[in-house]
Design a protein around this nucleic acid. Structure first.
Lengths: 336, 336
DNA sequence: GAAGTTGACGTGAACGTTCACGTGCAGAGC
DNA sequence: GCTCTGCACGTGAACGTTCACGTCAACTTC
């Protein structure tokens, strides 16, 4: 409360400064700060007040050293700008908070950084790591040593302690079935051009198409709305008129929607569109986006749950239980 | 590499375990792990390999204790689900990463938590705090003691070390001018019903309206797209037909857009709509959203910049330089 | 009035690093 | 042969807490 400048004093006050100012011992200060028993109300208040005046903040390092780590988990995410990731991050933060963990975040989207860079920064600070790491999941686990890494959407062949993957065959089947039932015969799969997690979706779509005899053309773009929009505009300008579209993710689908409308194709009339992921944004588009939806909060919860098991030893590293597969669900709205 | 189970061993390996395994001293292990001089290549590699095998991870607590904190900053955000906040968070993470800081995140949106709860969790872990804290900014600064807190969008009367606020009068003037110039005479301001930062926007809009003789009706809803949609639907059902709309933020504007269209009002034909914040989502809507845009990356950069000044002492706590005011810019798209 | 109990406080040790030296040894230089 | 230099490595101390005990007086208890 007293605005006491004390500016020249650059060094942090320690517990001993408080103790000597109050004329008591370290331990008594500890008792006062942590509301422990064995101290009179009077002394406790005096010490607390003095501590505040001196700007005393217990060193988290000293505390952690002696008490044995409160766990903090790293969260590595490619791009907070894609609405999918904040939804995911938010559920991770919630689940972690419930367990009393804290979350150190790194967003490696800007610049040319990769998940490995993020992990290198995070590694010295955390006891475990969750993230979208493909195709560097291996490298990240190496960086983390024995500390568990849960990787999302990377092939289980990558050697992380645990992982969550998605059943893209199932998703592709749901999506393509719906489109072909709606009469589409000339479907385009708009894929992301990023090496990483994309492979799964496009491969699954191709496989399902081949199996069911659906004609499927694959085009690619950066996984952003703007790039998707441009790609579809280009496609339409080339005279190609798909009569159905399955898109890598909802954000790209939003861009595709725009481009199709601009090209004079009605959605869903001329060309139904199905997105993937189920981000809240979908409901705000016109037409509202039909999508293969993931329960986003469940994804975060599952990731944290796995980590909990791995940390506690209830789940063994790389054991079958350490890998989960989640399924998409077709949410019908207006666009298909 | 060797999958050596070693599971029963629950305790972490320390530097001494590595040292004795390698037959060298602590200091030599330190030299090997940190690529320091004064060690032979041969020994370095041997130690590193051994360390990896033992799963040795240097304790961040011990390291921090002796080296004096690498700074980590807390980031408290109400709701990652509103696309505004991830954009902001992303720029904070980027700016912090550039300085070699790390970011501990807390999202206090879920449940009934407030910024103060988030700060309580964060406080023992961080050296400084950035966040949307209103109306609990005071309380948060108290929790943080002398450590600097930069609060966004809270009145400068709240006693944080620094802050960033927005010139809502300017924004309201830009928005209302544009609407009234377009011929709107019966404008609705769709406000958030959250106590916090909302006051500023609505008060500024009211003031500008009064000053310029514009007829402005204020309605309120939860700051989400769904709630805004519902509120506007209700409004329209009540027979009230606004001929122009200024909205608390872009997310709510997206909901309003939907509702207006459903109610048979053309946008911008019958009722132009202007949002606030300038989130990327705006471009994906139909019609594309005209908005009072903030340079979101600049906001994060500014916040981290302030914190940097405050931490280094270049800027004094609560001095005039510790408070910045940013301005919105009118970005004309289709909705107005 | 001796023994036990309680409350309020203090002290040594330990947590796992790094820093600032110190040591020993091989070879260079004269 | 002696010092000097450089290299590879080791050792005491310190960082700021908390834990597990101690201590000491005042008060009960019978």
């Amino acid at each position: 409360m007293t605005p006491q400048p004390q500016s020249p004093m650059r060094k942090r006050a320690t517990i001993l400064d408080v103790a000597s100012a109050a004329g008591v011992s370290r331990q008594t200060v500890t008792r006062a700060m942590n509301d422990m028993a064995g101290i009179s109300q009077e002394t406790k208040e005096r010490v607390q007040k003095l501590a505040a005046e001196l700007g005393y903040v217990p060193s988290r390092f000293a505390k952690g050293l002696v008490q044995g780590a409160r766990t903090s988990v790293g969260l590595a995410i490619p791009d907070l700008t894609n609405p999918y990731f904040p939804s995911f991050a938010s559920s991770v933060v919630e689940a972690a908070t419930q367990r009393g963990w804290n979350v150190v975040m790194d967003d490696y989207g800007h610049g040319t950084a990769s998940a490995a860079d993020a992990a290198a920064r995070l590694s010295p600070q955390v006891d475990a790591l969750i993230g979208y790491l493909a195709p560097h999941a291996d490298e990240v686990q190496t960086l983390m040593g024995r500390r568990p890494v849960v990787s999302l959407d990377s092939p289980a062949t990558e050697g992380t302690a645990g992982g969550i993957s998605f059943d893209y065959s199932h998703a592709a089947r749901l999506g393509l079935d719906h489109l072909s039932t709606s009469g589409c015969r000339n479907i385009v799969f708009l894929d992301s051009n990023r090496g990483g997690p994309s492979g799964g979706r496009s491969a699954a779509a191709a496989a399902v198409a081949a199996e069911t005899g659906i004609q499927l053309t694959r085009i690619q773009a950066d996984p952003s709305a703007a790039a998707a929009r441009e790609a579809v505009t280009l496609l339409a300008a080339g005279g190609i008129r798909p009569d159905g579209m399955l898109v890598f993710n909802d954000l790209m689908a939003a861009g595709a929607l725009k481009a199709l409308q601009e090209a004079g194709l009605a959605v869903p009339g001329d060309c139904p569109v199905i997105g993937m992921d189920g981000i809240p944004l979908g409901e705000l588009l016109t037409p509202e986006l039909t999508t293969l939806s993931l329960d986003l909060r469940a994804v975060g919860r599952a990731a944290v749950g796995l980590l909990d098991g791995l940390l506690s030893g209830a789940i063994k590293d790389r054991s079958p239980e350490a890998f989960l597969t989640l399924r998409h669900q077709l949410v019908l709205r207006q666009s298909a």
